[in-house]
């Protein structure tokens, strides 16, 4: 899941300062699950923009903003998009990019895109994967040090953790503490002893 968060409404208003006849595109994938681009949020956005004096020509929520095939496929869902002079996309950067590529009017984002993460047991977990294109997560017990460690260290911890908490964010467990404990439990510390040289990594 792509983790994105809503920009402050003031920033959205500033972006749309001289714009009108706005069509809002949500996203029923990650953004909806994170409550920053699903139907309730799209309706709320339309209302707040109208309260600010904007004319909202319509809205649509494609199953995934990043996978919209063509402008026509949006028209099929809501013909009002033909009247739009501005489009606001409530999705991640991929969604904004795809929509920007298929329409002729200016497209603005309402979200900030942060990382590739997930959601489990009601909790949003950011930075689970660094999208490095060279997956080695198995060697680290399913906890990717490139995603979870701010220094992306593959050969062991940095020595900056205090009482098991990350040097960068004391609220967060040190990724290497988690990795080591998990591998110790599994009896697979041998996997961590491997020296990762630059030559064997594709990055």
């Amino acid at each position: 899941m792509i983790i994105s968060s809503a920009k402050p409404f003031e920033e959205v208003i500033e972006l749309l300062k001289d714009k009108d006849d706005i069509f809002v595109v949500g996203c029923n994938a990650c953004a909806a699950k994170l409550h920053v681009g699903g139907e309730p949020e799209v309706l709320e956005m339309c209302k707040r923009l109208e309260d600010e004096g904007k004319n909202i020509v319509g809205w649509v929520i494609p199953s995934a903003a990043c996978s919209v095939a063509s402008f026509d496929s949006l028209v099929e869902k809501n013909t009002a998009i033909n009247d739009a002079k501005t489009i606001l996309v409530m999705a991640c950067g991929s969604g904004v990019s795809i929509i920007s590529g298929i329409v002729d009017v200016p497209v603005y984002p309402s979200n900030n895109t942060e990382s590739l993460g997930g959601r489990s047991q009601g909790e949003v977990i950011p930075e689970l994967c660094a999208m490095c294109g060279d997956c080695k997560i198995y060697y680290f017990g399913g906890i990717c040090p490139k995603g979870q460690c701010p220094k992306r260290l593959l050969n062991g911890p940095c020595g900056g953790a205090v009482e098991g908490k990350c040097e960068v964010d004391p609220e967060k467990d040190c990724a290497w503490e988690l990795i080591f404990n998990k591998m110790e439990k599994k009896g697979r510390l041998d996997l961590l002893e491997k020296v990762w040289t630059v030559e064997e990594l594709s990055e």
Binding site: N155, G156, P157, G159, W176, I179, F180, E184, L189, V195
Partner: peptide
């Protein structure tokens, strides 16, 4: 232990 492992590396 993890830091000691790294020192050995």
């Amino acid at each position: 232990s993890a830091q000691m492992m790294k020192l050995r590396k």
